[in-house]
Write a protein that binds this DNA or RNA. Sequence first.
DNA 1: CACCCGATTATCT
DNA 2: GATAATCGGGTGT
Length: 199
Amino acid sequence: MKTGFKILPRSFYLRDTSQVAKDLLGKILVRVVHGQLLAGIIVETEAYKGIDDPASHAFKGKTPRTEVMFGLVGHAYIYFIYGMHFNLNIVAHEKKKPSGGVLIRAVEPIIGIDIMKEVRKVSSITNISNGPGKIGQAFFIDRSLYGCDVTHAGPLFVAQAPLDLACDHIVEAPRIGITRAQDKLWRFYYEHNPYVSRR
DNA sequence: CACCCGATTATCT
DNA sequence: GATAATCGGGTGT
């Protein structure tokens, strides 16, 4: 498949999970499904630091559910939550750490907007993917993508932005929806960005 | 705008 | 049996 995107290499994900979470802001999330191209700019992420982090699904060690979190970085960790939502993470951690991942919390839609509006049943572009469960629906994320390698062209990957968006100010805040380790400022998002969730 | 709550199921206790 | 890295619709201010 030829998409023209410059895909981020695996080495990008073999770094501190918080650093990767910050650096993923401004990058492009790309999904190819049903012969359609869907893409958006990542504008909000959260870092989950595996066995070092009580809020991480990997905190209590490897289970069938969290298996990919302990595998090679640059793969998708997808989980089903609240009986209805699929959330997307990308495995990322330092070489010396066994696990860790970045939750993709919000995306600014750029390609396939009409399709995503339709599947989401919304009219406002800012309501398409401003939340992890909404991304799951808009980007057709499901179990079939569990463990998907996002460092190669395929059904799901992450690419470098065509323009430098690094000038936007990044806010560091407590993570959303967790009960433990609420003191950690491991949620990252672009300040004043209308596509960020819970503003 | 704030708060409350139901939906719906995998996972763990 | 309880909880969960959520969302959307309802009610009240």
